[in-house]
Design a protein around this nucleic acid. Structure first.
Lengths: 219, 219
DNA sequence: GTAATTCGGTTGTTTTTACAACAGAAAGAG
DNA sequence: CTCTTTCTGTTGTAAAAACAACCGAATTAC
C-alpha cells in the first residue's frame, strides 16, 4: 500500500499533508486495498457504505441500469479521485448506483467513522481531512450541477455542445480527449447512441468540430 | 434576527447546537439578514459567493435561463435549508446559476471564512458546524444524483413517474404536494409544459395517479 | 365587481429522437 | 494469421416531444 502514497499526496482528500503524515494515517484510518478486474463491481445499488474510497489505479464508472437495460452513467472516477463520500454521514441510506471497474482497478478503503471521529493517538490531522472532505464534495456538487446543465438541454446537439464545451474549458484546450467511447457518452448524456453518432457527424459537417475516436477538437 | 433562532435550531447546519450557542454564533459568524420580494434575485449567475446562506422565510429556486429563454430549475430551497455551501471552498469559481425568490423571502448570510476558520473566542462549535456542513452537502449530493436519475429517463412519462415516486417516498405517503406549478415542474424535469400536462392527463386516464393542482396521489 | 393576468388543459403540426437492422473498420483472442 | 467481437457510422421507420395557438377557469389587481 505504501507505493500509493505519492498518488494519495496528490488527492484532494489528503491535500496539505506530507507523505509521512499520510503514511501514519493509513494505519489510523484502517486503510484496506482491493483490486478489481475490468467489468467487476466495486459496489452495487442498495448496499450500505461505511467506507470512503480512493481510486489509485484504473478507472471506474458510477452508473445505474434500469429494468429494461437502459444504462445511465452518472460519473467517472479517475485515479486520485474519491467516491462514496456522499454516504459517509450517518443515516445516508443505501447506495443509489452501481460502481463498476471499466479497467482493471485498485481501490483503497478508509473507515468513515475513523475519519469523522478525532482519534486519541498522535495523528492530529483529522480536522484538516474533514475540511478537505468538505471541499472535495463541494467540487463534486458543482460538477453534478454542471452535468444537470448538460442533461437539461432539449436536443442531442445542445447536450453535446454543452458537455464538450465544458470539457474543453476544463482541459484548457480546444482539443481534448473524453473518457468515454460512443456508447458510454450516449449513456452519460442519456441519449440514443446511433442518434448521437449521427448528430456528431452532422455537427462535423456543419463545421462545429472534428473528432477521431475519443479525441475532439472544437472549432 | 433573534426571532429566527428556533428555525436555525432545526437546520442541518446548526444540528446539535442549543439556542444560546446559536445566538452566540450569530455574532461570531457575522450573520446578516436580507429580504427579497417575489421575483427578486438573491444571486445571479457569475457572481462570486463568500457566504453560506440559510433561508428563514419564503421559498427560492436555483435555476438557469439560456439565451432562448428556456428555463431550467435545478433545485428548490425551502425554509431552514441552506444554499451557497458548494461555493464555500476557495477556488470554487463563480456561481453557475441564478437564485431567485419565488415568494417574499428572508435570508441569513454567514461569512464563509468565519465558519471554516476556528475563531479564537469562546465559541468552540466550529468543528461541529464544519461536520454539519459536510453532512448537509452530502445529502444535497445524493439528491442531485436522484434528480439526475429523473432526468436520465428517456420519456416524459418515465421522468414524471421517477420524480413523483421519489416525492411520495420522501413524504412517506401516496398523497403529497409538490413545490411546483405545471410550468415549474416542466422546467424542473426539462420537458415542454403542454406535452407534460398532456402526459399527466393520459397517466390519470390510465389509472396511474390522480391530481388536483399540485397535490398528487399515486395509485 | 370588473378587468387583467396567470394557469392548466387541449389539439394539430413539425421536428426530433428512439429503435432496429446492417455494414465496414478496428481491436482482441486463439 | 484468422476468426470473433466490439465499435462506429448509416439508413429508414415509428414513436415521441417540441412548438404554437387557443380556451376556459382560477387568481390577482384595481
Amino acid at each position: 500500500m505504501k507505493k500509493y502514497i505519492p498518488i494519495l499526496k496528490q488527492t484532494k482528500l489528503f491535500d496539505g499533508l506530507g507523505e509521512e503524515e499520510i503514511s501514519a494515517m493509513l494505519g489510523c484510518l484502517q486503510a484496506k486495498q482491493y483490486s478489481y478486474k475490468k467489468g467487476e463491481y466495486v459496489f452495487r445499488q442498495g448496499e450500505c457504505l461505511s467506507n470512503i474510497t480512493v481510486l489509485v489505479e484504473g478507472n471506474l464508472h458510477i452508473q445505474k441500469d434500469d429494468y429494461w437495460g437502459n444504462r445511465s452513467i452518472i460519473n467517472t472516477v479517475g485515479v486520485g479521485e474519491m467516491f462514496g463520500e456522499a454516504y459517509a454521514a450517518p443515516g445516508s441510506g443505501t447506495l443509489l448506483n452501481d460502481v463498476v471497474a471499466v479497467e482493471d482497478s485498485t481501490v483503497l478503503f478508509f473507515d468513515v467513522r475513523r475519519i469523522l471521529t478525532v482519534c486519541s493517538s498522535a495523528c492530529k490531522f483529522h480536522s484538516m481531512v474533514v475540511q478537505n472532505l468538505f471541499f472535495a464534495i463541494s467540487e463534486k456538487n458543482r460538477r453534478l450541477v454542471q452535468k444537470l446543465g448538460h442533461m437539461a438541454k432539449r436536443s442531442t446537439r445542445e447536450k453535446l455542445i454543452s458537455y464538450l464545451s465544458e470539457e474543453a474549458k476544463r482541459q484548457n484546450s480546444g482539443t481534448f480527449t473524453i473518457p468515454f467511447n460512443r456508447q458510454q457518452l450516449a449513456d452519460f448524456l442519456s441519449v440514443d447512441r446511433s442518434a448521437m453518432s449521427n448528430e456528431l457527424c452532422k455537427m462535423r459537417d456543419d463545421g462545429l468540430l472534428t473528432f477521431e475516436k475519443n479525441r475532439f477538437t472544437l472549432l
